[in-house]
Design a protein around this nucleic acid. Structure first.
Lengths: 212, 212
DNA sequence: AAACAATCCCCCAATCTTAGGTATTTTTCA
DNA sequence: TGAAAAATACCTAAGATTGGGGGATTGTTT
């Protein structure tokens, strides 16, 4: 039971619900290769003891008293890039998912996942993977794909992409081998179709609707 | 064997290597719920027969004679958004991965994956998932994360983000509650640090290095 | 025939961008 | 605590960009 404690994977839990936290702890400790070195109810506590606990993997809830899990991920990653953070949450809304991934989460598992999936996730991050629940993976992959019902023509989309890269009308014209005035016409049409009248607004609408 | 053909999942394969293609066909047909309705060596053939074959899922190689798998994915998705495309390839380089996902792939499995993983992937796309090999998932998740060794300060990064949204110096100043001249100073410093002297170049370098 | 897409042209005024500077205050870190 | 870095603000100036008007032609698709 306590032999080779040094060799075990050091797992930490940050979760404010007592039942869930204790359940996770029991589950993980039931694997001889893992050792739950700490379990906290807030990011503040976890961060304070980070240098003492030295976790390899942290399972992190997102709804926490005080500092949010997202901010916690950001700060922990900043302090130590080696630590793998796996989000364990009920949230499946895209905003949360992308914020957590941008903040530095290596995995994202929803709480309805079964136990073996969770244990697999711990192994997976440690071998350089990125475990995700099915629906999360779908959201992530979908984020790369464009809206197929764009009101813009392909040429307009092309112009808007170059605009998004910060290029001027002149440069866009050169790259597309068309006249600068043509670029202006396209942009006028884009603004009309998107009901905007500035570059920033056009880009905002376009990105929100995945037109570019 | 041939009872309830109508109810089976209609699977199609596009793969130019005979051995691989036949192997996949045998493997998939060994599952009573699946039926390989077509197997082609090129996207051109697959597209020509799309309305006849009516596949639910297509397993697609990327290196193909003639039209590339990427372009094939794009065209097939355009023709029928309902079809799930799973990339089956040896390529693990990020460019290929992201191009395939942007083109509309629902999954991305590398050829070294074991058979059950591949069969699982077919089930997974049909239930709305996005099956990926471990390393692919990691690449995808990493793509959300920034370079932690940015030469830019957090304020500079903030300014650059707003610039990337197409906002003018004036608007940026307003949003950050600072003077327009301060924004200019930040941008001068950004250009200096990134060794560029224009917005478009700064954005290109910043995006390439995941500074924003 | 009508609608759409892509191309090009003109004018104009306001704003923006980049390039030189300098300088103060605040924060961070060794 | 003292130096360095970061964030802030200001100045001048020229040239480029942007957005709002107006229009026109050519081809494609329906």
């Amino acid at each position: 039971m306590n032999e080779d404690l040094e060799m075990k994977n050091r797992i930490e839990i940050v979760e404010d619900n007592d039942v869930v936290r204790d359940g996770l702890k029991l589950l993980i400790n039931s694997m001889s290769k893992h050792n739950v070195v700490a379990a906290y109810i807030s990011c503040e506590q976890a961060i304070k003891n980070l240098d003492k606990d030295l976790p390899d993997v942290i399972l992190m809830d997102l709804d926490l008293p005080g500092m949010s899990g997202i901010e916690g991920i950001r700060r922990i990653k900043k302090r130590n890039q080696e630590i793998h953070l796996i989000v364990i949450t009920v949230h499946e809304d895209s905003e949360m998912v992308f914020e957590a991934l941008c903040a530095g989460a290596s995995g994202y598992i929803t709480k309805n996942a079964n136990h073996s999936r969770l244990l697999d996730a711990i192994d997976e991050v440690q071998s350089g993977g990125a475990p995700m629940s099915t629906r999360i993976a779908k959201m992530v992959v979908s984020s790369f794909q464009r809206n197929q019902n764009s009101p813009l023509t392909s040429r307009e989309t092309e112009v808007l992409e170059l605009l998004a890269k910060g290029k001027s009308y002149t440069v866009i014209a050169d790259e597309l081998f068309i006249h600068k005035e043509t670029v202006k016409s396209h942009i006028k049409n884009i603004y009309f179709k998107l009901h905007v009248n500035s570059k920033a607004d056009a880009l905002e609408i376009a990105r929100k609707n995945k037109l570019i």
